[in-house]
Design a protein around this nucleic acid. Structure first.
Length: 480
RNA sequence: UCCUCCUUAGCUCAGUUGGUUAGAGCAUCUGACUGUUAAUCAGAGGGUCGCCCGUUCAAGUCGGGCAGGGGGAGCCA
C-alpha cells in the first residue's frame, strides 16, 4: 500500500508527540536548506518538516523546491522552534514530483487575485483559494444536511432542457447539428431541429424550478442543487455563465413559510461553516481586513468577516414589503438630495442595485427580505395577491452582494396562471406538462432559488464571484 | 452591451515638460550562513514597454484603432 500517510490537519490538531509517521504534500517554502513548510490541503497550516543537515544527498536537497510534491517520513516531536507546536524530523524524504522553480508561477509571496485567476489550475495551492474551496465544500455539504434533516428529497432536474419559456435568461443551445451551414433546413430556411439529436430544439437549463414543482406535488418537499447556465453577456463580480443553484420547492407552504425556511436555511449553512471551517474563515477574515485597509476610510465596511457572519446568524432578517421599501427610499435624505442615479418617484418601478444597497447597507444594516412586488416586474408563476397589483414574491438581499435569494409562493390556481401566461405571451402548449400540476391535485406551494456562488462569496468575503468557483465560465472565458 | 480606469522583467509596481544605455522590491540562479517562520547577507541573469497605424529629428511617454484585464451599470442568482 502506497498511501499510509497521515493528514497534516490531523497531526497539527493532535497533542501527541514522539511517534513515527509519513506525510505527503506540496512544498510551500524551503528555508535554510533545512525547514520545509509542507501543505497537503487538509488545512491552511503547514507542517514543518525538518531535514537534519547532511542527512540528505545534495541532489535530493536541490529538488525540494516551491511546488514540488514530496513524501517525508520520520518522528513527530514537540517543535524546537517557535511558530508551531509539533514538527516532523525527517529520516527519509522522497521527491514524488519535481517542480522547476524557475517555471512554477506560484512564489512564496503575495499574488494578485487577477493573476491567480489566469492560473486557476494552480491557485488551489494558495492559502486564499485553499480556504475558499474548503469553505465552499462545507457549505455544499451543509445544504444537503439541512434538507436531509428536514425530510426533503434531493431531486436531480435535467441539465438539457426542451423548454425555453421560463424567461429566466438567455439560453445556451444544445445541438449535434453541423455548424458549417449544412444543417438540415425547413422550407422557410430555419433550422430543422426534427433532425437534431433530441428531435427538437434543446438548451442548457436556466432553472430547475418548474420540474421541481412537479416533484413537490408528490413528495411535498424537494430541493435541487446543480449547475445552471445563462448565456447573458454579464460582466460583473456577481454573475457567471455557469453557476450552481439550490432550488427548494415545498407543497403546503405560503410566502411566510417560504421566508421562514429561507432564513433558517441561510443561517444554518453559515453556522455550519463557522463551526467546521473556523481557521479558514479566520484566515479569510484577516485577508479581507488587509484588503479593506487599502480602501479609503468611507468605503471600508464596518464589520470584519467573522463579525458579520456572527451578526447575520444571530439576528432576524428585516422583512418589509416592496411598498414599504419604496416609501423608505422615497423619504430618504439620499433620495431628497438626489444622490441616487435613479430617483425614486412612483410606485411600480424596479429597484436598482443602488436602492437595494441603500436599504441593506445604510438603512437596516442587515439582510433584508423584500416581499410583494408589483406583478409587472416579476415572473408569470408567482401567485397574485388579492390587491390585484402585487405578487407573493420575496427577494433576500445581503450586504455587499445584493440579491442572494429570489422566491415566491407559486400560482396554484389554473385560471389565474394561464391568464397571466397569456398576458405575458408565454405559449401554454409548451408548458402543458407544467399546467398538469394545476389540473390534478393542485395545492398552495412555494419555493426559492439561491445562487450558491453568491452565498460562498458572502461567507468567504471574496469580492469577485469568479474567485469562488474552481473554473469560472463567463463571457469570453472558458479556460481549463 | 454601456460607462470608466488599466496593460513596462516571472510577480507587484516606479518611470518628470517626448531626449542618450528603461529602474526598484519580491521571485529565480550562484555563493555565504545554518533553529528558520514569506529566513538573512552578498553577487548575477532577466525587458519586442499588450498589438497595429500615425504625429515627430526623436515615442514607454502624444493621437487613433484593436486585443486583454479591473471596477461600476444593466440583466439576474
Amino acid at each position: 500500500m502506497f498511501n499510509n500517510r497521515t493528514r497534516i490537519k490531523e497531526l497539527l490538531n493532535s497533542e501527541k508527540v514522539n511517534y513515527q509517521t509519513t506525510v505527503m504534500g506540496w512544498v510551500r517554502t524551503f528555508r535554510n536548506n533545512q525547514f520545509i513548510a509542507l501543505n497537503d490541503g487538509s488545512t491552511n497550516n503547514n507542517l514543518q518538516v525538518v531535514v537534519a543537515l547532511g542527512s540528505l544527498d545534495e541532489n535530493t536537497l536541490k529538488r525540494i523546491t516551491t511546488g514540488a510534491c514530496i513524501k517525508a517520513s520520520g518522528e513527530i516531536i514537540a517543535s524546537l522552534g517557535k511558530g508551531q507546536k509539533v514538527e516532523l524530523t525527517a529520516s527519509a524524504v522522497e521527491i514524488l514530483g519535481d517542480s522547476d522553480a524557475e517555471k512554477f508561477p506560484l512564489q512564496p509571496k503575495k499574488h494578485s487575485l487577477e493573476f491567480l485567476r489566469e492560473i486557476a489550475h494552480l491557485r488551489f495551492r494558495t492559502n486564499t483559494f485553499g480556504a475558499v474551496f474548503r469553505v465552499r465544500h462545507s457549505l455544499a455539504f451543509a445544504i444537503h444536511e439541512f434538507f436531509n434533516k428536514k425530510g426533503f428529497v434531493y431531486l436531480h432536474t435535467p441539465i438539457v432542457t426542451a423548454s425555453d419559456a421560463e424567461g429566466a435568461g438567455e439560453m445556451f443551445k444544445v445541438t449535434t447539428l453541423p455548424l458549417d451551414g449544412t444543417a438540415p433546413k425547413n422550407e422557410d430556411g430555419s433550422i430543422n431541429f426534427k433532425e437534431d439529436f433530441f428531435g427538437r430544439s434543446t438548451n442548457l437549463t436556466v432553472s430547475g424550478q418548474l420540474e421541481g414543482e412537479l416533484a413537490a406535488m408528490a413528495f411535498s418537499d424537494i430541493y435541487t442543487f446543480g449547475p445552471t447556465f445563462r448565456a447573458e453577456n454579464s460582466n460583473t463580480t456577481r454573475h457567471l455563465a455557469e453557476f450552481w443553484m439550490i432550488e427548494p420547492e415545498m407543497a403546503f407552504y405560503d410566502l411566510e413559510d417560504n421566508m421562514n425556511l429561507a432564513e433558517e436555511f441561510i443561517k444554518y449553512i453559515i453556522r455550519y461553516a463557522m463551526e467546521h471551517n473556523r481557521e479558514d474563515l479566520e484566515f479569510l477574515s484577516q485577508r479581507l481586513d488587509e484588503e479593506e485597509k487599502l480602501k479609503p476610510q468611507n468605503e471600508r465596511s464596518e464589520m470584519g468577516l467573522l463579525e458579520k457572519l456572527e451578526f447575520v446568524v444571530n439576528n432576524d432578517f428585516e422583512r418589509i414589503t416592496y411598498t414599504e421599501a419604496i416609501d423608505i427610499l422615497r423619504e430618504s435624505n439620499h433620495n431628497k438630495k438626489k444622490k441616487f442615479n435613479y430617483l425614486i418617484d412612483k410606485w411600480g418601478i424596479d429597484l436598482q442595485s443602488e436602492h437595494e444597497r441603500y436599504l441593506v447597507e445604510k438603512h437596516f444594516k442587515k439582510p433584508v427580505i423584500l416581499t410583494n412586488y408589483p406583478k409587472e416586474i416579476k415572473a408569470f408563476y408567482m401567485r397574485q395577491n388579492d390587491d390585484g397589483k402585487t405578487v407573493a414574491a420575496m427577494d433576500i438581499l445581503a450586504p455587499g452582494i445584493g440579491e442572494i435569494v429570489g422566491g415566491s409562493q407559486r400560482e396554484e390556481r389554473y385560471d389565474k396562471l394561464t391568464e397571466r401566461m397569456t398576458e405575458m405571451h408565454i405559449p401554454l402548449e409548451e408548458l402543458d406538462w407544467y399546467l398538469d400540476t394545476r389540473r390534478f391535485g393542485a395545492c398552495p406551494h412555494a419555493g426559492f432559488g439561491l445562487g450558491f456562488e453568491r452565498i460562498v462569496q458572502f461567507v468567504t468575503g471574496m469580492g469577485n464571484i469568479r474567485d469562488v468557483i474552481p473554473f469560472p465560465r463567463y463571457p469570453k472565458s472558458a479556460s481549463f
